[in-house]
Amino acid sequence: MTDPSALTAEAVAAIGKAQTSAELERLEVEYLGRKSGRVSKLLEGIDKLSPEERAALGKAVNESKRAIEEALSGRRSQLEENRLADLAETEAIDVTFPGPPLDRGHVHVLTQVRRQIETVLESLGYQVELGPEVETEWYNFEALNITAGHPAREMWDSFYFSPELLLRAHTSPVQIHAMQRIKEPPIYIITPGRCYRRDAPEATRLPYFSQVEGLAVDKGLTFGDLKGTLLYMIQSLYGRERKVRVRPSFFPFTEPSFEFDVSCGICGGMGCKSCRHKGWLEVGGCGMVHPQVLRNGGIDPAQWNGYAWGFGIERMAMLKHDVDDIRLFYESDLRFLEQF
């Protein structure tokens, strides 16, 4: 018959030497297994002992169990501590090794720029209005004060389906539709969409492009308001250090009419190679809405006035992302599209 305290000492010593949790597992079964564990075996033949001896043995065995359990859990936490302390060596990986490629699709850069433009102008209270791309002669030209035979028609050489039906040359017809629908100002709208002009494709222009126009009709609007709106838009899109220059120009649907430029982002307006030494980059056209155009939209110019501006989304994207050939936007070459 084994002495419980000797068995305890043997077990505790073995546990103290164990190096892995598997070893501890094995020792636990060896000593504390319910039927064949060595501690349980101490109780073999206990029924032959006197009540006093029986009580003493029971107590000794219980103590032995508790001591071994304590040793086990102590050693376990020690081993776990050791393992955590060694993680830096045992589980180190090469963190410079690349992850597998992420198959991320790309939203088209023109969608991204259109989204930014919409967001900026919506923050000023403008709402998006849409209209048909196949337009009538009246909405595309006449209503905008571009009468038949007007010398300015040269600016909008168009694709026709019939003498009365054409692909819109600008999104301005949407302004007329919007005035007719809304009827009572205030009107603050933007009109993004595709337009078409009969120009042979080259690096700076295409026969198809996308435009955004803005229109404000309200009481007492001024050229200063137009200028401020352009400045807000340009600075929101390109950064607050940018400046806007407004130059007189001519459009039949605005009076006065202007073109607007943004200061070159590279030289800040001093003139450099990228702005062809002008210091300014052309963005679009704008002006105070011609009274006849308001009338054509059913708005009384004696009570209301307005301003409008327009530009190409591609042009904005070219200026923002240094794209030097407009054709890249429509070629669907993934090597280009995945850059944005």
Binding site: A216, L221, G224, P248, E255, P256
Partner: peptide, 23 residues
């Protein structure tokens, strides 16, 4: 409005302070 344009362009559009509309 055509006359306003004549005056404006010689006076200098760059002299007009930018504002945002609001009433």
């Amino acid at each position: 409005e055509d006359l306003v344009e004549e005056v404006g362009r010689v006076h200098g559009y760059d002299r007009v302070p930018p504002t945002l509309p609001g009433r």
